[in-house]
Nucleic acid binder design. Sequence first.
DNA 1: CGCGATTAAGTTGTGCACAACTGAATAGTG
DNA 2: CACTATTCAGTTGTGCACAACTTAATCGCG
Lengths: 160, 160
Amino acid sequence: METLDSVPDEDFLRLDHQICFSLHAATRAFNGVYREALKELGLTYPQYLVMLVLWEHRELPVKGIGERLRLDSGTLSPLLKRLEAAGYVERRRSPQDERSVTVRLTGDGTALREKALGVPRRIAAATGLDVGEIRELRERLDALAVRLDAVDPDALGACG
Amino acid sequence: METLDSVPDEDFLRLDHQICFSLHAATRAFNGVYREALKELGLTYPQYLVMLVLWEHRELPVKGIGERLRLDSGTLSPLLKRLEAAGYVERRRSPQDERSVTVRLTGDGTALREKALGVPRRIAAATGLDVGEIRELRERLDALAVRLDAVDPDALGACG
DNA sequence: CGCGATTAAGTTGTGCACAACTGAATAGTG
DNA sequence: CACTATTCAGTTGTGCACAACTTAATCGCG
């Protein structure tokens, strides 16, 4: 079997170039396709992710959205302000806990879901993959993300 | 076989949530690990990609770097200025074609390669994948990117 | 040769990601 | 109950991605 140790550093630098770049490129290609498909909804791709979460839960605190999308308030606060300015969500401080801000769909935000229903099918068609392949790729990527998120930062500084 | 057409719109919105988010999350997880590993080199991940290309070619026009990384001058110009400020590259207009700017490694930039040699191995180890799995994932992502880049923008507006 | 079309790099403006920080509210401990 | 620690949202600053545009150089056709 071809183990990591059997590959010399020099080749590894090239292999690395390929894998890191491939993921980078695939993500940007996906973003480009979504950008086009979401143009008619007036949403960016991250805004669409937030709307997907809200369409499932109707209302959530900022923290809840952040947990589901793995985004912090530094990213979400301005994004949610833009969604509010577009009239798709409302934000108000929770009466129970004044630290928390509850984000809730407006009528327009709820209605937007109907217009968004056709988007994912068109994206999936653009990938040229069937449902099983999509699911398999998703599972691989999820497993990868879990492993990468679990990496001890200190283990990367020294040669592991 | 489970075709795209056999999945209702409602489920599709959820499936979509999973695949688009998974890629997004995996990319950000990768970025996080690279950020940590590249901290000692003083490089960001996109700057590292540019350095990888230059370590292979020593010098290239901005356009050449852009073609290899699929990035435009709007992204590269400021990035290359930062690499120049860090002392890793030099930029000078080409005498043959005054429109073109040639980016060349400095001594420091060339030397940095030695410090970078250990990085990809540590990243690969963090993924928990062996060489074959990495290669397979890369091939899938490349094929996906090619298909997504080839999508006709007009086909996404209307329901394809 | 002359002049419009194209090409290269850079600039500007918008939006996302993330680190580091602030300020306000709540939780927990003695 | 008082006081510290934590939590939540927001702000600031840096950097990347990309669209739209500008400027300067080159190309190519008549």
